[in-house]
Design a protein around this nucleic acid. Sequence first.
DNA 1: CAAGCCTCCTGCTTGC
DNA 2: TGCAAGCAGGAGGCTT
Length: 292
Amino acid sequence: MPELPEVEVVRLGLDPVLTDAFVRAVEVVDERSLKRHEGDSADFAARLEGAVLEAPRRRGKFLWAPVAGRDEALVGHLGMSGQLLVRDPGAAGDRHLRVRLTLEGPRGRYDVVFVDQRVFGSLAVDGLVDASDAPGERDERVPSQVVHIARDPLDARFDDDAFVAGLRRRRSPVKSALLDQTLVSGVGNIYADEALWRARLHHARGADSLRPSKARELLAHVRDVFAQALVEGGTSFDAQYVNVNGQAGYFAHSLNAYGRHGEPCPRCGALMVREAFQNRGSHFCPRCQRRR
DNA sequence: CAAGCCTCCTGCTTGC
DNA sequence: TGCAAGCAGGAGGCTT
């Protein structure tokens, strides 16, 4: 499931293809993939055709490429199963192709296709609005549908103190707080379980019961696991997540908690457990992640 | 107003 | 063997 490291791998792959690229054609194969676009597919295409795109940005799991000279951007979210792939022009064979962009850029002619099995992801053209949160800050504009998303821990302007304070104000399980994109963005079910395992925290532990030092430690683990996953190209299961060239990342081999139920804890050897938690699965070690 | 549940969706896995 | 229920989960809307 694409979380921050996977989305960042996609952004890095799109950068040379999208930056300064002219949009020659837009083909919407499945309108459901535009559910976050305000107009219809004709409007979506009209706003992009003839436009020039700027370098792709990311906040949390949202990606966008500003349209040069306009106050709007092409926005993408991969949802559960979305992929943005770079293909040769006119290439066929993508089973769940939803949208195709035909581009002409400094690096050549490419199609960027949006492929999405489960249709939880989406593309849109959305207005850019000011999101500066520091005095004197300039050019901090994000799509309107991203305004409520918090900065992610790899953002240079992420405020560690505000995160620690915000986390400890929550009267919810600590995992719920980690998954709340308005507190910290980019964390999904996999990396939440990994960070909690590294911090030896039980997912249901009350966020407000964490000492500031523990909250800070948890944030450091989120950063570490993100950074390591990014280096390893992200986490891939069954080719569900891939980079823009269709290649799988190999961080799945480095997971310590997620999907490891029934196996020994890599730290203490106790059998890992999977437990239903808020409509998802939580994977943890019952010995070194005590609820207290 | 925060917290948590439900829904969107498809394909693979499980169970009868 | 075949079919259907179960399961996976990001995000936003809705309820409590």
